[in-house]
Design a protein around this nucleic acid. Structure first.
Lengths: 179, 179
DNA sequence: CTAAATTAGTCTCACCTGCAACTATCTTAA
DNA sequence: TTAAGATAGTTGCAGGTGAGACTAATTTAG
């Protein structure tokens, strides 16, 4: 499902010219490696905010981000779908957040298999405090780009995401003014 | 970019008076999340080549990529520095690759703490076979972008990398014609 | 020259995470 | 109604990984 390629053209842009050595791959120019490294570094930079300061890990932060963006309580499965995180990982994050009374859950009367997750008062306060910090960090990281470059970067990321079928799975994704 | 706010406004919106929600963070527009998700997806797409086909994991692949790019044998520490991977992770990858006779190592007479890693014949053949596949995959993933967009994307990645100090650590990095 | 500090590499430990099995519940169809 | 299949969520297990201790070798300082 991920493909939408037409990439034969790219195949031969380094071949043939070299004597015998096959295509030489420079890790520093190899986009998959660069993405991995950059994502790891950015995560690490952000974790200063939510990890060391609030004791949250990435799955926990993803739960909070989903709850905070949606206005109504939602299920763990919904969080897993939205964030593309394994449901067992979300399950553990939910358990931990409940233990710390950052979120709570209520049975859904219509479907007793699932629980609706929502912030506690304490959790909502934490969220409100955390968000501006994270947004500021994001902007710091992007501060090396001009406003136009940030838009371009977001647009290009969006194109790749779309071609990999990573676009938002929630039907009610009211996102449309992205770029 | 979610709001382009300049921070101070974000600071005081937790005043009681403000009935409005604090800055709302949309995970789908939050660059750190997007990078994480995209990197994971791209890695997963690539692993079809080196994992399922050759039984390599990411650290092993990074060792091979470093050895293949450098012409001379290099140490495990050098690989760790270049790829920004923890030395224990590289150590395990090296052990595994040696066991499978894909690489071998020789003592460095000048410094008997370290070993110079190099391909075996078998390893070199594997490398030559693998590289074109990976480059092709990379181009498939980028095929949703025009040539100009790919250059732009690489350039923007490079700017962010540079600002995060992720540029190549090896002094002999002869890379300069990147763009 | 000797002792302290540094470095390459390995190893143990603790943690995280994906997988898959499992329970409980709901849905569908006969 | 009942049985088969799907779905929400939890948990045991196994594999991977970073932190940091540890060994051995080298360098630096006194």
């Amino acid at each position: 499902m991920p493909k939408a390629m037409s990439g034969e053209m790219a195949a031969d842009l380094r071949e043939e010219s070299a004597p015998k050595k096959a295509a030489r791959l420079d890790l520093f120019k190899f986009v998959p490696f660069r993405l991995n490294r950059l994502a790891a570094e950015v995560s690490s930079a952000l974790s200063a905010e939510y990890a060391t300061r609030y004791g949250l890990d990435i799955p926990e932060w993803r739960v909070l981000a989903t709850l905070g963006f949606r206005h109504e309580p939602c299920s763990a499965q919904y969080v897993a779908d939205c964030t593309r995180t394994h449901k067992s990982t979300i399950s553990r994050a939910v358990t931990s957040l409940m233990k710390r009374q950052i979120i709570e859950r209520v049975e859904n009367e219509d479907d007793r298999r699932e629980f609706r997750l929502q912030f506690t008062l304490k959790g909502a306060a934490l969220y409100e405090e955390l968000i501006p910090r994270l947004l500021r960090r994001e902007q710091e990281i992007l501060s090396c780009l001009s406003m136009q470059e940030r838009k371009d970067f977001a647009r290009l990321l969006g194109k790749i995401e779309a071609s990999l079928d990573l676009v938002q799975t929630s039907e009610e994704a009211d996102a449309k003014e992205a770029y």
